[in-house]
């Protein structure tokens, strides 16, 4: 289960603040199968942003805790 910095679970459709940009969670990459499908070696979350399109953020990156804040539940 992937969680935000405050401990809440990441869910598809969550609206978040992603480094100052509003984004919506559209993919959760957690299992080995999902990682393989998306070409990741680690767990990550896919965000849909208006400005940059689809952006995948690794949950192991130092920026995960600081840059992603849950705004509204799906």
């Amino acid at each position: 289960m992937l969680c935000y910095h405050d401990g809440q679970e990441v869910c598809i459709g969550d609206e978040v603040d992603f480094d100052g940009t509003s984004a919506t969670v559209f993919a959760i990459i957690e299992t080995k199968e999902q990682m393989h499908r998306h070409g990741f070696d680690e767990s990550a979350v896919g965000f849909q942003t208006k400005q940059y399109g689809e952006v995948y953020q690794s949950t192991l990156d130092p920026g995960w805790d600081e840059s992603v804040v849950l705004l509204k539940r799906a």
């Binding site: 480094d19 942003t49 400005q51 952006v55 995948y56 990156d61």
Partner: peptide, 21 residues
């Protein structure tokens, strides 16, 4: 760039992901 809070942004993350690939 992504590790530095001053330069971190969704765009920087996108660039990092492409560069990593």
């Amino acid at each position: 760039a992504v590790s530095n809070p001053a330069t971190r942004s969704p765009h920087a993350t996108l660039v990092k992901n492409q560069a990593r690939q």
